[in-house]
Nucleic acid binder design. Sequence first.
DNA 1: AATCAATAGGTGTATATACATATAAAATAA
DNA 2: TTATTTTATATGTATATACACCTATTGATT
Lengths: 152, 152
Amino acid sequence: MKLENALLTNKFSSEAQKATLNILYTAWWLKSITSKELKDFDLTHEQYNVLRILKGKYPDQLCVKDIARRMIEKSSNVPRIIDRLEIKKLVKRTVSESDKRETLITITQSGLSILESSTSKLNKVHASLQTITQKEAEQLNYLLEKLRATEV
Amino acid sequence: MKLENALLTNKFSSEAQKATLNILYTAWWLKSITSKELKDFDLTHEQYNVLRILKGKYPDQLCVKDIARRMIEKSSNVPRIIDRLEIKKLVKRTVSESDKRETLITITQSGLSILESSTSKLNKVHASLQTITQKEAEQLNYLLEKLRATEV
DNA sequence: AATCAATAGGTGTATATACATATAAAATAA
DNA sequence: TTATTTTATATGTATATACACCTATTGATT
């Protein structure tokens, strides 16, 4: 869908400003597709993201700060997301021996299992929505990173 | 910044999956830049978006549903955003005469004024971050809309 | 060693998202 | 006209974002 129809406006001050709104809208669209699928697994987008990060280092543990550094949204409140995962017994907290300020997070077998089934479902859905070629995806990645060139 | 460095991983299952994460991360990055500027005006990103929508039709009024249809994030809870704008006297609510279910929203002079100064500030900041050409912006818009081709 | 600064994680608050439900009004059907 | 359905908005709840602040611990400075 054209952005004009998604936002019911065609008042864009420039092509670059339109691209900004297009990125924000596409991000919302992607998130809402993913969240809808994750509902069946009683997971939010952010809880899924934390599980995915933990699995990436499994069987190693990660402390809260290291998880936060890998989050898509850097201002995510990781302790609170861990709270909810811990209640569902998908992760475990332990105090680090080497630095007692750190809390080490481990993904449980149950967490690994739910991550596997939800990822499998998400992959299927994303595959069915695949509309761009690999070359186009590369170009998109190039343009987004060029856009963020001023990032500190 | 490369996505690999932003997320501290290089485990992407495909170029398309990387593009998905890249869009989500870029959207967060854009929002955080904007929100930081809007803090000076005591506005959130979403409150700013509602004011911008109202100004687009000014001096006409818009009902809540028409604002919702124009929001970037379609699941935004518009009545509650209006609540906060109303407390700050940046908008006014009136019941529609032709359909008493509808609430008509009007942007106030104060709202127009704060929108003008905040937009001016945002434009300056965005201009200073401009890193892509118009052609590249066009291409980005094309790719994002192609990505959303399956949108219902 | 004692003091001070920095760091890690947790917690409090306001706002937003996502979604369910409630209420009133309008549109439609019987 | 009355009953039913649909629509518009508001409200309730759980989770998340954004950011400030607190506490415990560690590291650095004197």
